[in-house]
Design a protein around this nucleic acid. Structure first.
Lengths: 145, 145
DNA sequence: ACAAAGTAGTCAGACACTCTGACCATATTG
DNA sequence: CAATATGGTCAGAGTGTCTGACTACTTTGT
């Protein structure tokens, strides 16, 4: 994939990896350690009101077994808890615990910081164009948009 | 990370994952199976004239031990070969074999296809703006630009 | 109403990837 | 030429990932 004219997807990867690394590192520094990258990725998909394991698995594009394993680790580390789904006796909802919400808030701070830095570097106009193009592209690239 | 206003890095991830998945799947279909995603990612970093293990590891952001393991798998599957580095007796250059070059060519076809589809979807102007912004951003996000 | 099919989740087992730490061989530097 | 740095390997442990088989509950079609 690496060429003299790097393809667009690879350019996206570079930006994504930078942000992910930085957010992850800041989390560890802030005391949210015992958290691995795969766990954090899954955790990021947990919605406000709670999310089913299967939905989590779909969103993160892993099998439900893998999602189950990661949720177990997250639960053990105190980031999520599982509650019965009132709408379906088979299902359990995974939702963020108090500690989980703290972690999410910490992550969001760094996300905004990166966003601001990028805007400063590119200028408001280019940043808006970037987000517009990426958002449009999402319609044809995200199966769970 | 998932919010009502998804952050830019996450949008990048969506596009990247789509492209990677599609390229990888097409490779498998084309008979380049026995190739895993981590192996393919490393392989994509192998340069024309050969690349040292350490450089490969840096580029892919894994340890040299991990890179060594992946290269061994790639070698066993016939995608790369290792030759002595004339400039340094400690080092060995990893370079694509004939089969490896075939695989690379196949990947490039799909890459171009995706690029073309995105251009068609966004229009030439938006696609150019996207690439421009991503390329600029790379300067502040890629330690190995 | 109820049998058939589908969906949510778990358990077990195997394999791949990744890391840390310790080490050897060759290069580079003071 | 001794000290330090760099390229790479070996060993061992932990984590993540998958496939396959299973249980329990829900939905659907008659």
């Amino acid at each position: 994939m690496a060429d003299d004219e790097p393809n667009t997807a690879l350019l996206m990867f570079v930006g994504y990896r930078y942000a992910e690394d930085r957010i992850f590192r800041s989390m560890v520094e802030a005391g949210f350690d015992e958290l691995t990258l795969p766990q954090a990725r899954l955790f990021a998909r947990v919605q406000e009101g709670g999310t089913r394991l299967t939905d989590l698995a779909d969103a993160a594009q892993v099998t439900k077994q893998t999602a189950g394993y990661l949720v177990e680790q997250l639960e053990r580390a105190g980031y999520v808890e599982r509650v019965a789904d009132p709408a379906d006796a088979r299902a359990r909802l995974v939702r963020a615990s108090a500690r989980g919400e703290e972690a999410r808030a910490a992550a969001r701070v760094v996300e905004r910081q990166i966003e601001d830095e990028w805007t400063a570097y590119l200028g408001v106009r280019r940043m808006r164009a970037l987000r517009e193009a990426l958002t449009l592209l999402r319609e044809v690239t995200d199966p769970f948009a």
